[in-house]
Structures are given as C-alpha cells and as structure tokens.
Amino acid sequence: MDKRYIAEDRFAIERRMHPFRRSPGVGRPVSPDTLGDPLFQWFSTAVALGVVGLLVLITVILSLAAQDSIRTFGLGFLTGNVWNPVPPLVFGAVPFVYGTLVTSALALLFGVPISLGIAIFLSELSPPWLRIPLTYVVELLAAVPSVVYGLWGIFVLGPVMRVSVEPVVQDIFGFLPIFQGNPIGTDKFTAGVILAIMIIPTISAVSREALLAVPDNQREAALSLGATRWETTRVAVLRYARAGIFGAIILGLGRAVGETMAVTMTIGNRNAISVSLFDQGQTIASWIANNFLNATDPLELSALIELGLVLMLMSLVINVFARLMLGRVLRRGEGAA
C-alpha cells in the first residue's frame, strides 16, 4: 500500500518536471504557448547571430580604418621591419609579429607543463579536502587584473630575473644565441614568464575539466593491468583527454597572443628583432598600446590599426590551425574507422 502510494507520487513529480509529457489533470495547468516560446526563440537566435555580426563589424571597421596604410604599403607592411613615424613615413609589422610569436611560444613552453601538472594533481592526485580550495585559488589567478601582473613584473619579477635567473641560465646555456647579451630583466624572457603565469589558470582549469571527464572505467582498465598511478594517468587519462587538453592549450595561446598590459610593462619596448631572449622587444599589442596616443600622422594611426587587424588574423589562423590539428589527432586516434 505504502509502496504504491510512493510510486504514484513519484510518477506525478516526474510528470511535472517534464512539461511536454504533461497529462491532463496532473501538474500545473498549461496555457497554450502563444508568446513565450517564439519570444524566447527569437531572443536566443538574435543574440547568437549578433556575435557573428559583431565579429564581421569589427573586421570591416578595422579594415576601413586601416585602408590608408593597406593602400600605401600593400604587402610591404607584412615584410617590412622599419617603423618610421617621421617623413619619409614607412611602417612594417615584422618586429612586432616576431615579438608576439616569441613571447607566446615562451609562455606555452613554461606554462603548459606547469598547467598540466596542476590539472593532473587536481583531478588525479589531490586529497579530496584540498581539491576545491586549490581549484578556487588557481581560478583566482585568472581574476588578477593584467596591470597588476605588469606592476608585479616590473618591481618583483624583473629584478629577480635580472639578478638571479637570467645570469644562471646564461652560465649554463650561454653558448646558445638565444641566451647571449646582457641580461636586463625587462626583456622577452621576462615577458614570456609573465605570460606563462597569466595563461596557467586558463590552461589548468580547462585541462582539469577534460581530465575529470575521463570515465573511471578507463582508470580501472589501466590499474587492473598493473599500471602505477603515473602510468594510469599517462596511458588511460591523458591520452583519453588529449583533445580537451589541446583545446585548453590553444585557449591559453589565444590569451598570450593578445595580452597587452603586462607585456607592455615587462618587455622593455624596443622596436627591434634580436635573437637573444635577453634583449628587449615588442609585441603587436604592446606596440599599439605604446604608440596609439602619440600617433600624430593619420597614416601612422592607420598603420597601427592595420597592426590590430594583423593581430586578429593571427588569432584566427592559430584557431583554425588548432582545429585542423585537432581533427587530425582525433582521426588518427580512431584508426581507420
């Protein structure tokens, strides 16, 4: 008797939770959806398309504003390495593209292993009581404004790099051209380290999600073959989650490529291409930030905007490339299926 009552009650609750399966006399009476549904659908569609429109609009407006520069320099803008704001006006993007690529690569080099370590600890190794607080702290890193990272970079990280880190690196690896010259602490190396710190929360949080999504039966499969904890993580977990981890890395790279404030404050701001990481440099974002207010000639302004367009295209290329790579990795994973 009791059991039947409970079963009926549960049936009724279930019905109420599924409005489309509502039967007469059960749950709240339904008013025919004359307005709510279409309105909601219209709103969702509008905001979704709005995002696409916004991207197009930004591209169009940037292109229009950069028109002068595009007409004047053509492809020379992408191959030139001179930025001359006094007549004869010549503007080229190469040093900034170079600086952006170098600092972003450094950021990934330092950031990815640390982020994966954090993600593996949080999802596989951490005692349960530490898991949630630590996750919050890592995410808090993402909430620190980049200008604060910049200040910290100037007053704390820079001097440490100059006095302790860079000379040591030079002692060991000084035979490599990338570690030659006079370590000054405000250079591409420092900017790369700052960027690494800034992308760690992104990469580790997204990777952690990917690792948590790996079913436990995969871990059990490896453990039952006599795998150690690390082997289980490597064979069963990391492999299974590699697509998600790759996505996380690309997300981090996207942030590193576009990051402006902290890099501007630590990279030393010198418009030059040099092999040594201990030399000052410039990224696209930092150059725009440094020169936007001082651009007196309309052509220089136009060139700066074209630089912005280049940055946008770079992000686009990275994303498309990442997606292609991802597709290849996944296909190979599934064999010829």
Binding site: P215, Q218, E220, A221, S224, V235, Y240, R242, G333, G335
Partner: peptide, 14 residues
Amino acid sequence: GMVFQKANPFPTMS
C-alpha cells in the same frame, strides 16, 4: 587480471 561489467577498451588506442 580483471574484466569489468562494462567493456572498457582504450578508445584512443588501436
């Protein structure tokens, strides 16, 4: 060795 209730081959491996 052990075999589980739900077949759990490694999907990323051949």
